[in-house]
Design a protein around this nucleic acid. Structure first.
Length: 427
RNA sequence: GGAAGCGUGGCCGAGCGGUUGAAGGCACCGGUCUUGAAAACCGGCGAGGGGCGACCCUCCGUGAGUUCGAAUCUCACCGCUUCCGCCA
């Protein structure tokens, strides 16, 4: 959520900046609502002040044993109007809030302008696309050859966009999670955290998935309103909801492994082959809670933490900065990391690292108290995948494949693989 | 699932329906003292919001209700604790 004061005070500038990300702010509608709110709120509060004062007088008069019927009548005189005002104000404020909850974050000044993914800008590249002296297969064909991936069985059990993995490949999938968590906790200063996979609507509103993107979520049946998490970002960031941290507690860094559940509504026909886009996938997520002045530096280091995993695994990648038109709803700035996939002959997203500044914090009322003892301030939140596990597995399969369809185990994973160093093709 | 109890400021903890946004303590901030620190003492100190301002409003788990007036009374819901049962 944007700062309501900013919205009121600099409505036109805000609208202009939101336009760069393709969002049309209805300036007129907002201004009209805001004007009505202002006059109604002033009237309501004046009447409330009146009632408060008179009630106090009644108390005093009664204490002295005086007659209070005149005072009571005075209150009666405006009680009706007050009730109307209060009710209308409540409706109006709800309307304004709904409007504000639907407004995306303002892009940071350093974000390149652009209308869509074609305008994203590459900022660096690591490694070079893997070369083969044979024609490389994609992970689906490799999965068939090794007998380790089984989409048909997954379809039988659940449907499209699910996968079943067997043996050493399933183990490598688990090993990746271990490597990622160990790296972030031992080398990058994150605290490991375990969280619920089912969350309430308040949490989803806090991070920005609700109210606007409900169709992307799986909602559970049952007497409680619960949703499956689309990312660990939701439960982990909401740890900070309604909190006031002391300044010396910051920064807080969490690393968390969870499954993620996404309906992928609206991506029909996209990445239908293989395990690139699944309804269920594993991810290790990094979340940071920092002081406002530190958040952009934190985004750089957090992105580096995700890159470190790819470097350990020897997977070529590039980092791009998303342009204004391609960023997510809540983000002020986002780097995507794209890994080289020989099977597709292109770079594909494997991590997304974002600085939300105070956008999520305002929705969550996540704050900290500055050292000088003054008012609590909103903190800044960030998160990034470190990494998407399924896609990392795909990248390893495709980059580490050999001519016979077997897959070498990257050195960094060997300690976790119990002696297996090749996923071989059965005879 | 059954029974009982409890939800008050950053934390702990008082609070007869009426000058209570809330005693007290801790923490925190400022000061005195000290070579420095600690201790002691003095002072300050909840959050959110509105108004150009003088100021004003809201908030005691959440939501309804009673009342001129609710932290305080009623109802519902949520959460927590303890005991019993069941259970990975």
């Amino acid at each position: 959520m944007l700062d309501p004061k900013l919205l009121r005070g600099q409505l036109e500038e805000v609208a202009t900046r939101l336009q760069t990300r393709g969002f049309k702010l209805d300036v007129g509608a907002f201004a009209r609502l805001e004007e009505r709110r202002k006059s109604l709120q002033v009237e309501t509060e004046n009447l409330q002040a009146d009632r408060k004062r008179k009630s106090k007088e009644i108390g005093i008069a009664k204490g002295k044993g005086e007659d209070v019927s005149a005072l009571m009548q005075e209150v009666d005189g405006f009680a009706q109007r007050l009730a109307e005002c209060e009710q209308q104000l409540e409706v109006l404020q709800k309307e304004l809030l709904d409007l504000q909850l639907g407004i995306p974050n303002i892009p940071h000044a350093s974000v390149p302008a652009g209308g869509g993914e074609d305008d994203n800008v590459e900022v660096r590249k690591w490694g070079t696309p893997t070369q083969f002296d044979f024609t490389p297969l994609d992970h689906v064909d490799l999965g068939v050859k090794t007998g380790a991936l089984d989409f048909e069985t997954a379809a039988k059990i659940s449907g499209a966009r699910f996968s079943v993995m067997y043996g050493p490949l399933a183990r490598m999938h688990r090993a990746l999670i271990q490597l990622m968590l160990d790296t972030h906790t031992r080398e990058h200063g994150y605290r490991e955290v375990y969280v619920p996979y089912m969350v309430n609507p308040e949490s989803l509103q806090g991070t920005g998935q609700l109210p606007k993107f409900e169709e992307e979520l799986y909602k559970l049946r049952g007497e409680k309103d619960l949703y499956l998490i689309p990312t660990a970002e939701v439960p982990v960031t909401n740890i900070a909801r309604d909190m006031i941290y002391s300044e010396d507690q910051l920064p807080i860094r969490f690393a968390c492994h969870t499954p993620c559940f996404r309906s992928e509504a609206g991506s029909h026909g996209k990445d239908v082959r293989g395990m690139i886009r699944q309804h269920q996938f594993e991810k290790v997520e990094m979340v940071q809670l920092v002081k406002p002045e530190d958040s952009h530096a934190a985004l750089e280091s957090l992105t580096g933490h995700a890159e470190a995993i790819l470097q350990k695994l020897g997977l070529p990648y590039r980092v791009i900065v998303l342009c204004t038109g391609d960023m997510g709803f809540s983000s002020a700035k986002t780097y995507d990391i794209e890994v080289w996939l020989p099977g597709q002959g292109k770079y594909r997203e494997i991590s997304s690292c974002s600085n939300f500044e105070d956008f999520q914090a305002r929705r969550m009322q996540a704050r900290y108290r500055p050292k000088d003892g003054k008012k609590p301030e909103l903190l800044h939140t960030l998160n990034g995948s470190g990494l998407a596990v399924g896609r990392t597995l795909v990248a390893i399969m495709e980059n580490y494949q050999q001519a016979d369809g077997s897959i070498r185990v990257p050195d960094a994973l060997k300690p976790y693989m119990g002696g297996v160093d090749v996923i071989s093709v059965p005879a």
